[in-house]
C-alpha cells in the first residue's frame, strides 16, 4: 500500500464525485424502492461540491481535506447521508490529524473511528441494512489482514453492499417498509462501497474495481 498524500486524497474525492455522477440514477432507483428516492441526487450534488471545494482550497494534509469534506457535505446533502458521511470524514480528520499522509496503520485507526462515529450518529448496528455493514466489512479486513490486501478489501466492501439485499431495514426511511425493504440493496451501502473502491485503488496499484451487475442490485 502506498501512503495516501493530500494530493492523492483530493484525486480520490474527485474520482468519487465522478463515480457518484455515473451512479446517480442507480442510487436514486434503489432509494426509490426503499426510501425517498434522492440518495443519488444528494450524494452526487454533495460530493461534486466537495470536489470543487478541495480543488479550490488545496489542502496540505489528508486531515485538512477530510475536514473540508465534512463541512461541505453538511450544507449540500440534506438527507441523513449528509450528517452520516460528514461524521465519518470528521472522524477520519481527527484520526489523521498532524500526518502528512495516511499509511495502512493510520487507515486502520481512521476507519475504526469513522465506523464508530457512523454507528453512534445513526444508532445503527451491523445487519441493520445500512452503510455500517460496508464500513464494518472493511474494518474487519483492516483488522485481520496485515498487511492489507487492498483487492480483498474492495471485494469485501462490494460483497457487504450486495449482502444488504435480502435484509430487512431497521434504520431510516426504509425501516418503515418492514419486510418490504427486502430484495433491494441499501443505497448507502452501495455509495460507501464505491468510495472504498476509489480509496483503495489510489492506495494500491493494480486494484480492480468491482463490476456492478445493475440488475442484481
Amino acid at each position: 500500500m502506498q501512503p495516501l498524500t493530500a494530493e492523492a486524497f483530493v484525486r480520490v474525492m474527485d474520482a468519487y464525485a465522478q463515480v457518484l455522477a455515473e451512479f446517480r440514477d442507480v442510487l436514486n432507483e434503489l432509494d426509490n424502492r426503499i426510501g425517498d428516492g434522492d440518495h443519488g441526487t444528494n450524494m452526487a450534488r454533495g460530493f461534486s461540491a466537495v470536489a470543487e471545494k478541495l480543488k479550490a482550497s488545496q489542502p496540505t494534509t489528508p486531515a485538512a481535506g477530510c475536514q473540508t469534506v465534512a463541512m461541505t457535505l453538511l450544507g449540500t446533502v440534506g438527507g441523513a447521508s449528509g450528517p452520516l458521511y460528514s461524521t465519518a470524514f470528521l472522524k477520519l480528520s481527527a484520526a489523521w490529524n498532524g500526518r502528512a499522509d495516511v499509511d495502512e496503520e493510520a487507515l486502520r485507526g481512521g476507519v475504526a473511528a469513522a465506523l464508530e462515529g457512523i454507528m453512534a450518529r445513526g444508532r445503527a448496528a451491523v445487519g441493520d441494512k445500512t452503510m455500517v455493514d460496508v464500513w464494518t466489512a472493511v474494518q474487519r479486513e483492516l483488522q485481520t489482514e496485515q498487511p492489507l490486501d487492498a483487492q480483498r478489501a474492495v471485494e469485501a466492501a462490494a460483497a457487504a453492499a450486495l449482502a444488504t439485499k435480502p435484509l430487512t431495514a431497521r434504520k431510516g426511511r426504509a425501516a418503515y417498509l418492514g419486510d418490504r425493504s427486502q430484495g433491494t440493496v441499501d443505497p448507502g451501502s452501495l455509495s460507501s462501497a464505491l468510495w472504498f473502491a476509489e480509496l483503495f485503488a489510489a492506495m494500491s496499484e493494480g486494484v480492480v474495481k468491482p463490476q456492478w451487475d445493475l440488475s442484481a442490485l
Binding site: M71, L74, G75, G78, G82
Partner: peptide, 12 residues
C-alpha cells in the same frame, strides 16, 4: 431547509 430545496443543514 437547504438554500434552495428540502433538507436539514447542521451548520445552519
Amino acid at each position: 431547509g437547504l438554500e434552495d430545496r428540502l433538507g436539514t443543514d447542521a451548520i445552519k
